[in-house]
Design a protein around this nucleic acid. Structure first.
Length: 314
DNA sequence: AAAAAGCTCAACCGCACGTTA
DNA sequence: CTAACGTGCGGTTGAGCTTTT
């Protein structure tokens, strides 16, 4: 038996075993307790935090709730074209290193990126009847998806291009919490934490004066640490500005550390993109369906992937 | 209009690893 | 040095919502 298995139960596990811990969706009241406590004491020491804040939750649960939902610097809304591009590129380099990828997408959580990958990207792979890690699918991303995203970004369309109609660009959340002039339409469904999904939940908490505004960002661990700090494995920078597309191009023009069987860089591919010169190495033949069929099924008819339909002349 | 199928994403789980006492 | 504790990560689940039939 591994030493790990021999250890005694943690306080979390003891409480969980004895059944006095809450699970499932967080309530507004719980969110307030957590937010208030962190505003005053900062984050960390999650087990102790959970106890001291009066939350009948595990430390893990508190940490997750804070990092994935309550943090003031979270960016909400659908994944933009720029973000999609970064995800695709970074995943091709690092695989399922979600937290690492998330470090390069400020305001996005590893959970969010992971969900995006599983629900969107893997779905496409399934529809193509090929493995998401297969060379075929990587080629598809590299020669179809990513160039198109670059095209959109480069045309000034991409930075703010939502992948769907409701994926409008969101204003950057303030670095600190207090919000003076935010108009809110808040539903007060106290039974659920799903008050809104548009990035104003924290603001709504404030608006209802249920939570004390936190102190200004201090050089402590409490706030403002989510921005990627030292980046020793790449040169990505990121902003929501469409003018950043050029910088992203430059970055993506650099050959990845471990190249696939195709030495062509994304940028080269993008530059040579045209309807007529659409060559897709390895994409024909043994796929589950032909490219013409893909237009019908792979990206569907949603605005999300309208580009594909257009490109294929469908 | 209702039922079924599909989709999204918040939350949980187990494990690994780093830190602390 | 070691056991206990705390944290972070990737994988998975399922409730609720949306779309399709």
């Amino acid at each position: 038996m591994a030493p790990r298995d021999q250890r005694e139960m943690s306080s979390d596990e003891e409480s969980a075993a004895s059944g006095d811990l809450r699970r499932g969706p967080w309530t507004v009241e719980e969110d307030l307790l957590l937010v208030n406590y962190i505003a005053v004491h900062g984050e960390g020491r999650w087990n102790a935090l959970a106890r001291c804040a009066g939350l009948r939750r595990t430390g893990k649960s508190c940490r997750l709730r804070w990092l994935n939902y309550l943090r003031p610097d979270l960016r909400r809304g659908n994944i933009t074209a720029q973000e999609q591009l970064l995800i695709l590129e970074l995943h091709s380099r690092w695989g399922n290193r979600w937290s690492k990828i998330a470090q390069h997408l400020p305001g996005r959580t590893d959970n969010e990126i992971k969900n995006y990958w599983r629900t969107r990207v893997q779905k496409h792979a399934r529809q193509l009847n090929c493995d998401v890690n297969s060379q075929q699918f990587k080629d598809l991303m590299r020669y179809l998806w990513m160039p198109r995203l670059l095209e959109r970004i480069g045309s000034g369309d991409g930075a703010d291009v939502a992948t769907t109609a409701y994926d409008a660009p969101l204003p950057q959340l303030p670095a600190s919490w207090p919000v003076d002039d935010v108009e809110l339409s808040c539903t007060t469904d106290a039974s659920s934490s799903s008050v809104s999904t548009d990035g104003t939940y924290q603001q709504q908490l404030l608006q209802h004066q249920l939570v004390s505004p936190p102190p200004p960002p201090a050089p402590s661990a409490a706030f403002g640490e989510s921005a990627p700090s030292g980046n020793n494995e790449g040169s990505y920078s990121y902003s929501n500005s469409s003018s950043n597309a050029a910088a992203m191009w430059d970055t993506l023009c650099q050959p990845p550390p471990q190249t696939d069987c195709h030495p062509t860089t994304v940028a080269e591919t993008a530059c040579s993109w045209s309807d007529e010169s659409l060559l897709l190495p390895g994409l024909s033949g043994d796929m589950g369906m032909g490219l013409s069929e893909l237009g019908d099924t792979m990206w569907g008819a949603g605005a999300d992937d309208l580009w594909y339909t257009q490109i294929m002349g469908l």
